[in-house]
Design a protein around this nucleic acid. Structure first.
Lengths: 146, 146
DNA sequence: TTGATAAATTTGCATTTGCAAATGTTGTAA
DNA sequence: TTACAACATTTGCAAATGCAAATTTATCAA
């Protein structure tokens, strides 16, 4: 026996996955359009982000940290190299992997790019109080912890 | 003057946008692989979801509810029509729009498909208590309310 | 050693996506 | 009534993405 019969509009707006998908796509397109102002785009963002965090990673390491496919990493790096933002250097101990390193120009972008990302986050989070933000972050981290 | 100098690994894992992106892509690929078991995929999911919620929508209405591009709607419907799950019927008052309607087969899929989506949500939310889930939902809805 | 298996990266090809323009339809102001 | 702008949808073509196979190098067991 169904308890709630009415309100056919409810389901989608209470589906957690749907809400997250909408939120994510908003954040993504917002950041993308900002990044384009400085010649970047959302595709290269995770890679650069990871490298600013730790330079000289291997491609597989980048693949893991960016949660993308290996061939995506290859192509993203091709593009970033063409833009002169990173370069592939030989790995000191293994000839089958590369070390991906930021160039001076690549390093220089960190400040403006991360400022943009923070602005995006700020924008979407502005609806919440400081306390609520902490709460939200804790909950999300819990979800991802598994 | 910088206060926090150390801990270079922090930024990405505390970037709200990044966390949401990771979470969203997890949920998406999880649901996609489940849907494929019944001949669907993540691409047609929002459209079907919207139609199960309210049948006989116009394509523009679908576009808005699914947060996609108009040409994506066109193509998704092409695919769904080919699968015999929806059909485009003439609009009663305007010859330039269509009414998109579920076929019997399309309607029949609702039960199994939404069960799959719920299972995905359940899986990822299993880390949280009932109280925490409500909290999280409230916060996310607040973000999307703007 | 050598041959087989696995790892790191790249590439060819097919599918999907996105942009911009095209098509057909409606509203509206002169 | 007739131009002209706005709408709803589709389509051609270029760029991005995904899969499966290829390439090169490393490991390991016989």
């Amino acid at each position: 026996m169904k308890i709630v019969e009415s309100d056919a509009l409810l389901p989608r707006h209470t589906s957690f996955g749907w809400l997250i998908a909408v939120l994510a796509s908003q954040l993504e397109s917002d950041l993308d359009s900002r990044l384009r102002e400085i010649g970047l785009n959302i595709g290269s963002w995770p890679t650069l982000f990871a490298l600013w965090e730790e330079d000289g990673l291997t491609q597989t390491e980048l693949t893991n940290r960016c949660h993308t496919a290996h061939y995506t990493t290859t192509r993203t790096l091709d593009a970033l190299e063409k833009q002169g933002l990173v370069e592939r250097r030989p790995h000191p101990t293994s000839r089958r992997s590369h070390l991906v390193c930021l160039t001076a120009r690549g390093k220089k972008l960190e400040t403006s790019a991360t400022a943009m990302a923070q602005a995006c986050n700020e924008d979407v989070l502005s609806a919440l109080s400081a306390k609520e933000r902490t709460q939200l972050n804790t909950l999300i981290l819990k979800l991802l912890a598994e």
